[in-house]
């Protein structure tokens, strides 16, 4: 409650910005990392970074800016991936992290399970292309890589998903691409 009072006074309309975008930010972070604990951490860090620029009046499109901040935060987690996984495992059972409306739905979703097994860069590219509906050029700009790299990552990611989801069909095609 104290936080909300502050939001109404000192931080002013940033609370409105938060209210308008926080759900989308957390969802994107969750899809990028497949990690409930990291999702909120990433979203909070992204909002804090956006706040600095927003307060100076440098952010024209908060949604796009926040998306970039979330993707960048998720990307930077790659380097700390091992430690984060260990921390996430250690904290399993506590009540932090996003809430899942249907706790079992994700477990029943075999596509989601396969997505979680993709290498981080492939999953980031796939999520940005098929969840955020970004173009290849927009995805490349957001990930700080070339368009060719995005094409390659998405193509390889989809091929790998197909193999994981339908190994029999893949075997029937002769094993598919490497």
């Amino acid at each position: 409650m104290l936080a909300m009072v502050r939001a109404a006074t000192e931080e002013g309309s940033f609370a409105a910005v938060f209210n308008a975008h926080h759900r989308q930010a957390v969802r994107l972070a969750y899809l990028l990392t497949s990690d409930a604990f990291q999702a909120e951490d990433i979203a909070a860090e992204a909002f804090a970074k956006v706040y600095v620029r927003w307060k100076r009046g440098e952010v024209r499109d908060v949604g796009a800016y926040l998306r970039r901040a979330v993707a960048n935060e998720a990307n930077s987690k790659l380097r700390r991936r091992y430690l984060e996984r260990r921390e996430s495992s250690r904290r399993s059972g506590d009540d932090r992290g996003v809430r899942l409306v249907d706790e079992d739905a994700a477990d029943r979703d075999e596509v989601w399970a396969a997505l979680a097994r993709l290498p981080d860069r492939q999953r980031h590219a796939v999520v940005l292309r098929y969840y955020e509906d970004l173009s290849e050029a927009e995805t490349a700009q957001l990930l700080g890589c070339s368009v060719g790299t995005v094409k390659s990552q998405v193509s390889r990611g989809l091929a790998k998903l197909e193999r994981m989801l339908d190994p029999a069909a893949d075997a029937g095609r002769g094993g598919g691409s490497r």
Binding site: H22, V26, Y30, A39, G97, V98, V101, A106
Partner: peptide
Amino acid sequence: RATDVEPT
């Protein structure tokens, strides 16, 4: 999966 997620 996105609609299944709610921030705390």
